[in-house]
Amino acid sequence: MLKAIIIDDEQHCIDRLQLLLGNHSETIQVLGSYSSVEVGKKEIDRLKPDVVFLDIQLNEDTGFDLLSQFERIDFEVIFTTAFDNYAIQAFKFSALDYLLKPIAEDDLEQAVKKLIKQTGLRDTSQRIETLFHNFKREIGHSKKLAIPTMEGLVMVDVDKIIRLQSDVNYTHIFIATNTKITTSKTLKFFEEILDPQQFFRTHKSHLVNLKYVVSYIKGKGGYVVLSNGSKLEVAVRRKDLLLQKLKTI
């Protein structure tokens, strides 16, 4: 049985989530619901829940303000939000789960299933850390990407990613340190979250960090040669756009 608490500043949202979680009463027990950062912090410390359903906008504060008060986060966090593309992007980056309001029943079901699978690993701190790291806006600051793998979560500096290659439903990520990470996320997932100014889909199976392109070899679509020596095919339709991007770098 998982212990859960809900933190949201709107009662109808709490009510709806409680109603929906009622369908999962054999796996999740809602210990309480709170509407402010202050109370939420206190109650988390007291109740030590396994999972917190956390709204992003909490009156004048945010759910992030709440999380930043913990030194170590040993509970799972599922963010709930109505519409915030920027935050959703950040969650995807940090491999954090989220639910969109109004919450669809099947979405919640998916989230609960994942919770049951994940409990015990408890790498939440790491992911929240990654989230906060990515929120920093400093010059020359490189974002970190939390990549779920078979062995667990791997944090990767985005600037260190040379390229990504799709392999059916898996993606191989090649890092500058000469390591390869394989994840069950699709290449499309990464294409959507990574900065399109930096990463370019040269081919159906290839997403390339333009920073590591050393040369372009002419051809029908041609090839790009990367600093690690790999030579990748460029799709005919991506050629013009690629050359345009390479020029602007």
């Binding site: 519409f83 969109l100 309001k101 109004p102 669809a104 029943e105």
Partner: peptide, 12 residues
């Protein structure tokens, strides 16, 4: 409920 969820999904 079904209507609403679908409506919000489409809107989004």
């Amino acid at each position: 409920n079904e209507y609403l969820i679908k409506f919000s999904k489409l809107t989004r």
